[in-house]
Structure formats: C-alpha cells, structure tokens
Amino acid sequence: MSAAPGAEGEGLLFLGKATAVISHSIKNVMATVSETAGLLGDLVALAEREPRRMDLKELGTLGETIVEEIQRGFQVVQLLNKLAHSGDQPVADVDVEEAVAVVSSLGRCLAYCSGITRLPSAGEHPRIHTRPLLLHDLLFRALDAAFRAVGPDGEVKVGVERGADGVSISVHGLPAGFRGIFESPSVELLKQALQARVLLDREAGVLRLVLPERIGEARA
C-alpha cells in the first residue's frame, strides 16, 4: 500500500527539514563541548604557569558540562534515529503518544520554539495503523504553526485522546488570530494520505487532528 506520490514527496521534504533542524542542534552541542574543552585547556595551561591558580572545583564543573552536553547530543541523535526509522514502513502500527513525544522533541530544536506541555492522558497509549512518516510530518506542521502563532514566550499544550471517531491529537493555547494549517495543498495531500481531519476551534484556541484507528486500504 503506497501513499499518493505527492504525499511521499512531502514525507521526504519533512525528513530533509527535520534533519536540517537536528544538525543545527548537534552543531550547538559540539560548539559547547568545543568551548568547554577549550576553556579546560586554557585553565590547565594557566595553572602550569601559576600552580596556585588551579581551581579543581572549576575543572570538575567543566568536566561535568562536557558529560551533560554529550548526553544532550545523544538525545538529539536518538531523535534523529527515531525520525529516520519512521520511514521504514509506509504503513505501520504507531504509538500516538510516542509520535507526539518525538515531534515535540523536534519542535524544541526550533529557535522559535514555544514552551510545550503535555496534557494528562487517560493512561493508555493509543495505537493506530497509519503512515508513520506522514503522521510525524502533519504533527510537526501543526506544532510549527502553533509555535509561530504563540511565540517563544508562549506555551502550547498537547493532548492525545481516543474518541468515537478515532484518536485525536489536540494543540491548545492558540491565539484568536490563528489561521490553522489548512490552506496549503501539501497539507491537503497529507490529510488525504492519513485520512485525517484537521479541526480548528477558534474560540477555544484548539487545533485538533483526528486520525482513524486504521487507514483504509481503498484510500491508500
């Protein structure tokens, strides 16, 4: 079962954009490790000239910073790995909470990222049979649009819930002027490929992506 060629192209574009965003984050980590190691070297060189200036506590703190940054880098690489594998199978069972977590992590790499909090879920992790890569793409577009509307000082809340018509992912906290993500032909392609509905409650400031439990073979 393959999606419409246009939708597959959208998935590739998404992976390209995600990779660019992630590479920026990795470079920031590398830059911090580089400066931390550089400062360590500077302080050691200084202490060689003036042994009394050796501050072991400061050296230890810098060492800890390198470890922390490597952990941050590892998390970014894990994110890249998860996104890369979202394209392994055109259609698969997807843990929606996990998909939201992955896309939220990607969103946090954006310079204009707003705060993101997760609304409490009912405890279950709803799974749906869908197109993983395109689901991540649509979700990212929703979050990206929300961040741009809310701004870096604002906050969006994301919730996942199972309903009678499938599983819905809701993005809360949108301003009154939010225009949604509906008008782009590429979003239309994604909606069709995912058989998703995108609903906007302007009054409540909530964008909702409603996804079927299982995409139909006939509409693939």
Binding site: N28, A31, T32, E35, T36, G38, L39, D42, L46, L62, T65, E69, A111
Partner: peptide
C-alpha cells in the same frame, strides 16, 4: 547567543586572552 554555556565559556576564553 542563547546557548548559555557556549557563550559564557567563549567570553571567558576571550577575557583570558
């Protein structure tokens, strides 16, 4: 820079020079 440790350490290294 919003990368706080990066820019703090870079400033320190410049001051040392």
């Amino acid at each position: 820079d919003d990368e706080q440790k990066f820019v703090t350490f870079l400033a320190t290294r410049l001051r040392l020079r």
